[in-house]
Design a protein around this nucleic acid. Structure first.
Length: 128
DNA sequence: CTCGTGACTTTGT
DNA sequence: TACAAAGCCACGA
C-alpha cells in the first residue's frame, strides 16, 4: 500500500489552491465567498473550518490571505472570521480593532484579549 | 531551486 | 489557560 501523504480523504486529492485575482475569481474562491456570506450576524467561523468546508483542509492560511488581499473581501462579513482559538487574528493596521468593534456591535462578547466564546457563537459551515 | 513570510492549526508542556 | 515548536502551504524574492 502506498501511504497517502497528509490526507485521509478518500476522494480526489485536490491540486493546490491559489488566489489569482488577476485571472478572475477562482470557483473555489467564489464558494468561499458564499460561505462567509452565510455566517449569521452574531456568530463567527474559523479560517480552518471555512477552508475545510470548501474541500481544502490545511488551507486555513489561504483563507486569511484571501481576506487580507482580495477586493472581494470588502463586501463580505470578514469580521466574523476568527482563528481556531476564537481569537481575532493579529496583523498590522486598524483591522483587529475594527473587527472587535464590529463583533461587539453584533452582540458578541469579545474579551479584552480579543477572544470570543466559540462554544457559544461558533457557526458550523455546511459541507457542499 | 531555496528561503523567508504570513488574517493558520495542532500538539506537547 | 498560556506558550512554544512543528507542521502546513501559497507566494515572492
Amino acid at each position: 500500500m502506498k501511504r497517502r501523504r497528509r490526507d485521509s480523504s478518500p476522494d480526489t486529492p485536490p491540486p493546490t489552491t491559489r488566489i489569482d485575482e488577476a485571472r478572475g475569481p477562482d470557483p473555489l474562491i467564489l464558494r468561499l465567498c458564499d460561505l462567509i456570506r452565510r455566517i449569521p450576524p452574531g456568530r463567527v467561523c474559523t479560517y480552518g473550518r471555512l477552508a475545510a468546508a470548501i474541500g481544502r483542509p490545511r488551507h486555513a492560511r489561504l483563507v486569511g490571505r484571501f481576506l487580507a488581499q482580495s477586493p472581494l473581501a470588502d463586501s463580505l462579513p470578514w469580521h466574523r472570521v476568527v482563528n481556531a482559538s476564537g481569537v481575532i487574528a493579529q496583523r498590522d493596521g486598524a483591522g483587529p480593532r475594527r473587527q472587535r468593534a464590529l463583533l461587539i456591535a453584533e452582540g458578541i462578547d469579545v474579551s479584552p484579549a480579543g477572544r470570543v466564546n466559540l462554544a457559544r457563537c461558533l457557526w458550523m459551515p455546511k459541507m457542499q
